[in-house]
Amino acid sequence: MEPFIRHTGIVAPFDRTNVDTDLIIPKQFLKSVQRSGFGVNLFDQLRYLDEGQPGMDVATRRLNPDFVLNQPRYQNATILLTRANFGCGSSREHAPWALLDFGFKVILAPSFADIFFNNCFKNGILPITLPDQEIDRLFTEVAGNEGFTMEVDLEGEQLTTSMGKTLTFSVEPYRKHCLLQGLDDIGLTLQRAEHIRAYEERRRRECPWLFQDLNSA
């Protein structure tokens, strides 16, 4: 995973609450056995006027001119501004894969669904929770200022808008550490292998049935 330290980019507003992961990446694209290539189908049902299928050449598809990410001013957006409970529903990690593949590095919302929130950090995307009033204000500012950008400083837990306004946010220390270093947390956990084995030994004495071999029934 690439480290996330500081990021500056165009902000795209997606004004919708309860955006579910089915909407972020529809099920037909989940048949892939790879981690990449989902970006062209991000928000597929909203972005295109026809039904998307895996393997389709997206250049031949009709774009929905009303969808925010199709508007020229947001073409190169890397920061998504959205509403409450973003990423609810299915646990599909294809959702953050699609967002990242499209180019999004930061998502700003009043709240996120738990599994999606967690999945973002595993992929180097920074989801930032801000109070409702701040999100409201950002929606107004983004709409009123073409080329609105933001600088996100993870170390300092601070974001600065191109209007010169500064906001603070907070990230849990462990998640922040992993993002800043671009750490693979499996490697970190494996450094604790002795502790895991010690837990297993103790647990096996107390509750031996938990260690029944599922290969043997």
Binding site: S91, P96, D114, N118, D185, L190
Partner: peptide, 22 residues
């Protein structure tokens, strides 16, 4: 609980998850 694919890999290789209590 439901987990993402990165955590599927984490559980397969370590039999553990890193979590904060809900």
């Amino acid at each position: 609980q439901g987990i993402g694919t990165s955590e599927v890999e984490h559980v397969l290789t370590t039999q553990c998850l890193i979590q904060k209590k809900a």
